[in-house]
């Protein structure tokens, strides 16, 4: 039975490695929160940064800087203001390298 559980939990992860499947990779809070990110940050564009390969510490620092920069007017500034330290940490650990 454990084995069945393993299979169900691992297949999405394996599919993720192939680079074909789209969508959340888990069913926990990390997956729920990062559902907000992937619609824009799929890969790098010319004006929206891709997140693949960014170290988690760098990502966390960037998100905190967006949130705490009171004068910032970009969409990312306005959205970052809605997240707690804990949420930003979890997002960074999930998406960061």
């Amino acid at each position: 039975m454990r084995w069945q559980a393993l299979l169900i939990a691992f297949l999405p992860w394996l599919a993720g490695c192939g680079g074909v499947a789209t969508g959340p990779t888990g069913i926990d809070q990390a997956a729920l929160l990062t559902a907000s990110c992937s619609g824009c940050h799929a890969e790098g564009g010319q004006a929206i940064t891709g997140l693949t390969g960014m170290p988690a510490t760098e990502l966390e620092a960037k998100l905190l800087a967006y949130r705490d920069d009171a004068g910032g007017g970009s969409a990312m500034h306005r959205m970052a203001r809605g997240y707690s330290d804990e949420q930003i940490g979890l997002i960074a650990r999930t998406l960061g390298d």
């Binding site: 992937s38 799929a42 564009g45 929206i48």
Partner: peptide
């Protein structure tokens, strides 16, 4: 913001 919109469209339609 115009460029961001274009990137957004590319990313969301890909997803």
């Amino acid at each position: 913001e115009g460029e961001q919109a274009a990137d957004w469209f590319r990313a969301i339609t890909r997803e």
